[in-house]
């Protein structure tokens, strides 16, 4: 199914300033209106509209048949979504916060990811699991995890993370239309970012990375919450005469080797930025595969600027944990520049 075919029937709306939360809401709304098999359920997604209001108004419009508060059990949410998908529905489910997706780990890893393979392609599970993730919102413990490495390391899952409202709309629509299960990672700190959009908007395909800002000296790779940090770093760097190219990965699995590799071969230096801990983190995969494929184009080792290898800290300590433009620039300064 192409994105075009799923978007076209939706009536065009006049330009309006939309938050990422509102863009996500519109994406679910439009997908539900276009496809009667799309159903939505999870914790508090009904009358309340979700704790981040991403599902606001959907219960009122589509009713209990298609939008429902489920019992409070994440494994149950994913497990029942799997059964519904076997019967031809397209469930969109919400994990209320990143760390609360862990009870669903077994259903996601042992069934959601593997069903197509186990059944030799007979059973597709077109399910979207929305996970609000990452920190920088002053959240108490278990409300700021970045769990993308777990999902990205699991064959069978597609893992994406938008960084702006336009992508949030376009990518979520594409995720819902996809026949593969998609882990849709929503950066909580960006929920309130506004952008003027005329919906429906279609950005580049979900599985591709984009160069958000061109540069010649360094490729800075980010996704989700750290895209903003990377763009701010690039801005600051111009004062130091450093030209940074910023890539928004958008898709963590699959990884867009072509786009990122082309940028790296141009700049010959790369760094990857994420909030999650460094050890075994997503950046390790980025650095390893880019090095394997582009070693002779590299002028310096690929750097990772990430959270420390510690559990996500308390609100008053998170500023020391999160990667900042200063920290990124300092890291780039450790390279030998000849």
């Amino acid at each position: 199914m192409t994105l075009q075919s799923t978007i076209s029937p939706v009536v065009a709306r006049p330009p309006a300033a939309l938050t990422m939360a509102a863009a996500l809401n519109a994406a679910i709304h439009d997908s539900m209106r276009d496809d009667p098999t799309v159903v939505l359920f999870g914790e508090d997604v009904g009358p309340l509209g979700g704790v981040f209001r991403v599902t606001d108004g959907l219960y009122a419009e589509f009713g209990e048949t298609r939008v429902s508060d489920s019992p409070l059990a994440e494994s149950g949410i994913v497990g029942t979504a799997i059964g519904m998908a076997i019967y031809g529905l397209r469930p969109v489910v919400e994990m209320q916060f990143d760390a609360f997706s862990y009870p669903a780990f077994e259903q996601i890893v042992s069934h959601l990811a593997k069903m197509r393979n186990r059944t030799r392609g007979r059973i597709s599970l077109p399910i979207v699991i929305r996970i609000p993730y990452a920190g920088d919102i002053g959240g108490v413990e278990h409300h700021s995890d970045s769990s993308e490495a777990y999902w990205s390391a699991t064959p069978g899952l597609t893992v994406v993370s938008p960084s702006n409202p336009a992508d949030a709309y376009s990518m979520l629509r594409e995720a819902i239309a996809s026949d593969d299960p998609v882990i849709f990672m929503e950066p909580k700190s960006r929920y309130w970012m506004k952008e003027v959009l005329s919906l429906p908007v279609q950005t580049t395909p979900m599985n591709t990375a984009v160069v958000l800002r061109e540069g010649t000296d360094v490729t800075l790779i980010a996704y989700g919450p750290t895209v903003k940090t990377a763009l701010a770093t690039a801005e600051l760097a111009t004062a130091e005469g450093l030209s940074i190219e910023v890539i928004d990965l958008r898709s963590l699995s699959p990884f867009d080797d072509a786009t990122v590799g082309a940028s790296l071969r141009k700049t010959s230096r790369a760094a990857v930025v994420h909030e999650a801990a460094q050890f075994g983190g997503y950046g390790a995969e980025v650095a390893a595969r880019l090095t394997e494929r582009n070693f002779f184009h590299l002028a310096a080792p690929i750097l990772r600027i990430t959270g420390f290898d510690i559990p996500y800290p308390s609100p008053k300590l998170e500023e020391y944990f999160l990667p900042t433009p200063d920290r990124i620039l300092a890291a780039l300064g450790t390279w030998e520049w000849s």
Binding site: T65, G79, A81, G83, M84, I86, L89
Partner: peptide, 20 residues
């Protein structure tokens, strides 16, 4: 094989049947 996981799938499929 992962114990009891299939019970949730059964509930999901049954619920889809009911919704339809």
């Amino acid at each position: 094989t992962p114990l009891a996981t299939q019970a949730l799938h059964a509930v999901g499929l049954a619920t889809a049947s009911k919704l339809k």
